[in-house]
């Protein structure tokens, strides 16, 4: 692949075609406007929301909750993952618990969180942390276990203390796996923030979308969905950009092995 950005014409054409089909369908059957307003009116609603800034506080609330939950999940997942991957007795102690809790759909924890934490920010952040932590934790444990023992022995023969081995060798050595976990957790965390906001919280994009639906403002509801989609897309691109910088060595290495 060359460095030039290749514009995917067929992909965008089919996307635009779908929008036109939507517009056409909505105009042919105006009786269904509540379910499917024309895309032009959704775009109009979106434009108005952006100009008026009416959606700003919701977007900000979602972003804050997401960032808080995601960063806490990352800190817990990576730290605990490294310790569990490195110290087998600790893994014996907690391994079963993780295996049992992990497959449970995280949204099921929302009622428990509401009971214990109420319907404020802390509940939404806690749910996000819970949902996001698993993929980070599991991948970090996996990454630590895949580290070459020679790498750890190298640290030992150079007289590194155990904590420096964890920090300087295990952490970077496991980072390719950790990054995978962080990327999965990114989308999971965003799903959970939005879902929790639909149930409680009083503001946020999830709240906004559901509120507009209940007010039968379906153009605004769709505009809200578009904003959430754009948020997810932007966060993912941001993540990839940061990952590309931090893991430059890894990408070069993989490219070399493929060649």
């Amino acid at each position: 692949m060359n460095g030039r950005y290749n514009f995917n014409w067929p992909g965008w054409a089919s996307f635009v075609f779908l929008l036109l089909l939507w517009e056409l369908g909505a105009r042919v059957a105006p009786g269904y406007r509540l379910y499917l307003p024309p895309i032009s009116s959704v775009i109009g609603a979106l434009g108005q929301l952006i100009i008026s800034g009416a959606v700003g506080r919701h977007l900000l609330a979602t972003l804050e909750r997401f960032l808080a939950g995601y960063l806490i999940a990352a800190a817990i997942g990576v730290t605990l993952g490294i310790l569990l991957g490195y110290f087998q007795p600790l893994h014996n102690l907690l391994g079963i618990l993780i295996e049992l809790l992990r497959p449970m759909p995280s949204v099921a924890i929302i009622p428990v969180a509401i009971l214990t934490l109420g319907i404020g920010d802390s509940m939404i952040v806690a749910v996000t942390v819970y949902a996001g932590v698993w993929s980070i934790l599991i991948n970090t444990i996996d990454g630590v276990r895949h580290i070459e023992s020679t790498l750890v022995d190298t640290g030992r023969t150079f007289g590194l203390s155990r904590s420096r081995i964890l920090w300087q060798i295990i952490l970077p050595g496991a980072s390719p796996y950790i990054v995978t976990g962080l990327r999965i957790a990114l989308s999971i965390a965003l799903i959970l923030v939005t879902t929790a906001e639909m149930i409680a919280g009083g503001k946020g994009m999830g709240f906004y979308i559901l509120d507009e639906e209940r007010s039968m403002n379906s153009a605004n509801m769709y505009a809200g969905i578009v904003i959430v989609a754009a948020l997810g897309y932007t966060l993912n691109r941001l993540f990839l950009a940061l990952e590309g910088r931090a893991m430059k060595w890894r990408h070069g290495m993989m490219a070399r092995e493929m060649a």
Partner: peptide
């Protein structure tokens, strides 16, 4: 502290991220 071991497998003992 006064001794260091050099391994045969340089590809496993060098830090790929450095």
């Amino acid at each position: 502290a006064d001794l260091v071991l050099l391994f045969q497998e340089y590809n496993k003992s060098l830090f790929a991220w450095r």
